[in-house]
C-alpha cells in the first residue's frame, strides 16, 4: 500500500546526508538529517537543525579576509574590522547570497530543499554496503516528523528498494504524523531524555507527555531502540536510568543506547552566531557509564554506549 503523499511530500529541507553512519541503527547506514525541531535542548549537538529554514553557518577559520562577501550582502550586515569579519546576525535574514560569493568555504549554507528522488538516489549509492553489513537508511534530524510527509515518502521509496529503514525521533509530534512514517520504518530509534516532566520542560522547552504517550503507542506497532543522551548531573542518576530501563522493559524495547554528552554543539552554536548556554554540560565518566550500562543489563535489556 503506497502512502498518501500530498502537499509537502515531494521535497523536503535536508541539512546533511551522512554516508557510512554506524551509530544510527544496525550495520553501515546512510543517515538523512532533516531540518526543523520542536525541541530546544540545552545540549543540542545539531543546533543548525533547529530552524525550519536554511541558515548561514560561518567558519571563520577558513576566512582569508578577501572581502568578496562584503558587497554580496544586500542588507550590509557584514563588516570587516581589525579583528576580522563580523556579521550582524540581527540584521541577517539568511538570504545566503554571501555563501555564493565566498571563495574559501568560510560561509556555508545549512539546509537545502531536495526531492525525494534526489535523496533516495544518494541513499542507494551505498546499497552494497547495506547488504553486506545488515545496514540501511536512517532518517534523523532535527525532528524528521516535522516533515512527516516528506519523511514518509523517502522511507517508502527506500522500502520499495528493499532497504532496511530506521526512524530516529524525539517523539515530539502529533501521533498521526508519527504513524505516517512508522508505516515504513523497520525500527524506531526513540530518544528518551528525561522522565521527569518538569525537568524535561525546563531543559528542552517542551514537556514529555506527548513523547511518552507516542512511545507506548509506537512500541505496539514497531520494534523500538531507546536512546538516552547522557548528561552528568542531569539525567544520569542511577534511579533515573533504572526507571528508563524499566520503561523499556515494559514497552518491549529491544535495546537501550547510552549516548554520552559531547561538546559538538558548542562550535556549531558559535558558527550560527549564537551563544552556547550550556557551559555546565559534561559527560558522565567512564566508570559511571559502565555502572549505568550494568543497571540496564540487570533488567535483562541489552545496553550499549555510543551507538
Amino acid at each position: 500500500m503506497a502512502p498518501a503523499i500530498a502537499n509537502g511530500g515531494d521535497s523536503g529541507l535536508v541539512f546533511n546526508i551522512q554516508r557510512f553512519s554506524v551509530h544510527d541503527g544496525p550495520g553501515i547506514r546512510t543517515t538523512v538529517f532533516l531540518k526543523g525541531c520542536p525541541l530546544r535542548c540545552l545540549w543540542c549537538s545539531n543546533p543548525e537543525s533547529q530552524d525550519s529554514h536554511p541558515v548561514l553557518m560561518v567558519r571563520d577559520i577558513n576566512c582569508k579576509g578577501c572581502r568578496a562577501c562584503l558587497p554580496a550582502c544586500p542588507r550590509g550586515a557584514i563588516a570587516f574590522g581589525a579583528a576580522g569579519r563580523t556579521i550582524d546576525r540581527s540584521n541577517c535574514d539568511n538570504c545566503l547570497q554571501c555563501v555564493a560569493a565566498c571563495l574559501y568555504d568560510s560561509l556555508q549554507r545549512c539546509g537545502s530543499r531536495l526531492t525525494v528522488q534526489a535523496v533516495v538516489a544518494e541513499v542507494l549509492q551505498d546499497r552494497l554496503f547495506y547488504k553486506n553489513s545488515g545496514g540501511g537508511v536512517t532518517l534523523s534530524g532535527g525532528e524528521p516528523l516535522m516533515q512527516s510527509r516528506f519523511a514518509a515518502a523517502v522511507m517508502a521509496a527506500c522500502k520499495q528498494e528493499g532497504l532496511h529503514t530506521a526512524l530516529e525521533t524525539s517523539g515530539q509530534a502529533p501521533w498521526e504524523e508519527m504513524e505516517r512514517v512508522l508505516a515504513w520504518a523497520d525500527v524506531i530509534l526513540f530518544d528518551i531524555k528525561q522522565l521527569d516532566a518538569a525537568l524535561h520542560q525546563r531543559t528542552t522547552g517542551v514537556g514529555n507527555a506527548t513523547i511518552l504517550s507516542n512511545l507506548r503507542r509506537a512500541a505496539t506497532v514497531r520494534p523500538v531502540w531507546l536512546r538516552v543522551p547522557l548528561i552528568a548531573g542531569f539525567n544520569d542518576a542511577a534511579d533515573h536510568i533504572r526507571s528508563v530501563a524499566l520503561l523499556g522493559k515494559e514497552i518491549g524495547a529491544q535495546k537501550i543506547s547510552l549516548l554520552p554528552y559531547h561538546e559538538g554543539g558548542r562550535s556549531k552554536q558559535n558558527s550560527l552566531g549564537r551563544p552556547y548556554d550550556f557551559q555546565e554540560g559534561k559527560a558522565p565518566d567512564e566508570e559511571r557509564l559502565k555502572l549505568l550500562k550494568g543497571l540496564i543489563e540487570e533488567t535483562g535489556l541489552p545496553a550499549s554506549i555510543g551507538s
Binding site: 554506524v22 550495520g27 553486506n132 553489513s133 545496514g135
Partner: peptide
C-alpha cells in the same frame, strides 16, 4: 581504533566484504 571495537565489527566486516565484491 573505535571502529573495530566489538559492537562495530559487523559493520567493518560488511565494509570489507563490500570491498571484495567491488
Amino acid at each position: 581504533p573505535r571502529f573495530l571495537e566489538e559492537d562495530l565489527k559487523p559493520a567493518f566486516m560488511g565494509y570489507l566484504k563490500t570491498w571484495k565484491e567491488m
